[in-house]
Write a protein that binds this DNA or RNA. Structure first.
Lengths: 224, 224
DNA sequence: GAGCTTTCTCAGCTTTTTCTCAGCTTTCTC
DNA sequence: GAGAAAGCTGAGAAAAAGCTGAGAAAGCTC
């Protein structure tokens, strides 16, 4: 997909760009509202990720401008949690969805995918690895025929691992993708959550499907 | 379905377009009467949603023009509640139905569906999920053989959930679809109404069929 | 316009989730 | 096989999310 990210906070923009590119998308970044507007007008994007607080022209204005020109590219707005700007306001200006900062990468990409899918009627979009099936729309996970109840964080983690099945992901990668941007707590959370997930998704007798690769990270294996 | 929305208020147009597309329709938007007329003449639509107060050529005129050209595409008129324009007048000019602003999304789509159905007489059009049956035309809901009395809001909510059975809908989605456009009250209403609905539709002994997906939203399950 | 229904807000309560911490186990190196 | 590094895990505190009863306000009906 072709994506436009309009975000003035450089670090965040870089983080988002890097992550989305790793996800296989083509990403343009604009640092202020005017530049964003210009790009949005002159390039065809599948989704626009638009921060509200921007120099020169804020997100609401950019969004309203585009809509007034009959540009209906799906827009995902980023709002700060402390809520100086209202969430409802974002939707009112014609945004299609919003996300409050801080957010995790997995959640961002999930939202972008959901937006891009709108209008397109097909509907496979489940992740499958071995006998694990994860359905982002229904927000359910199954091992074989039995449903697995997962919390939001566990779900994100499994989503991430399944999208990178068979590849060893470092703890840093995981922390980056699954936890909110700017998280600076104990990296041990990853171990803890891997533990939770193992308890829930492991076969009663089978071996873990999440392998520990000592000194490197974790890897989700399809079989056994 | 192919729909045309003629509405000059940008925010409302975006909201309607977004929602209808999420509902699986192809939506064109025109920002004034002349553009609307042009599109209506040159494209085959299943239903036209037509605001009355429009720049250049108002809804009545557009409607009359189309009818005088023997264009009988079903027209749903949008009127402001304060009633500067008369509802009867809308029907007189050849509109098929009208809706007063503000309206909720579920109501809008219900009306559009009803209009589109007029030409095609067959079609039962009841919603069924598990042993829940909802008949939008008759405005009745049944669990098995017993009727459930629902208020208008409860009905809309159940309608929405049933149309998206098995999929987890966020509170924001629900608020957007079931409550009037521009509603900016406490999002807690959703929780309250989910509570009401659960009391009414739950089996005496069964588990709830509306599941809470913590941190994400709600999901209507068919079975069990 | 009294009485009933519906819709919505509010605040306190309950449940669930998330995260930290500290001690324990496993694995690796020499 | 001792020591160190890496990983695992149970307990529990803190925060977040959701639920619900009470009641105010608005609408409808007769």
């Amino acid at each position: 997909m072709r994506l436009l990210v309009v975000e003035d906070e450089l670090k965040l923009a870089a983080y988002v760009k890097r992550g989305l590119e790793a996800d296989g998308h083509a990403v343009d970044v604009a640092g202020d509202g005017v530049e964003g507007l210009w790009l949005a007008r002159n390039q065809p994007y599948d989704v626009i990720v638009l921060d509200i607080m921007l120099p020169k022209r804020n997100g609401f204005q950019v969004c309203a401008d585009l809509r007034s020109e009959s540009n209906w590219t799906p827009i995902l707005m980023l709002t700060a949690k402390d809520g100086e700007y209202d969430i409802a306001e974002a939707l009112d200006t014609g945004a299609d969805d919003y996300l409050t900062k801080p957010f995790s990468f997995v959640v961002l990409t999930a939202r972008i995918r959901a937006l891009a899918r709108r209008g397109a009627p097909e509907r496979p979009t489940v992740l499958e690895v071995g006998d694990l099936v994860l359905d982002p729309a229904a927000h359910t996970a199954m091992r074989g025929n039995s449903e697995i109840r997962l919390t939001a964080r566990e779900f994100s983690l499994l989503d991430f691992l399944m999208r990178h099945a068979e590849v060893t992901m470092s703890k840093a990668d995981i922390l980056n993708a699954v936890w909110d941007w700017g998280f600076d707590g104990d990296p041990n959370v990853v171990e803890v959550y891997i533990g939770y997930l193992r308890k829930k998704i492991d076969h009663p007798f089978g071996r873990s499907s999440i392998e520990t690769v000592r000194g490197v990270g974790y890897r989700l294996r399809a079989n056994r």
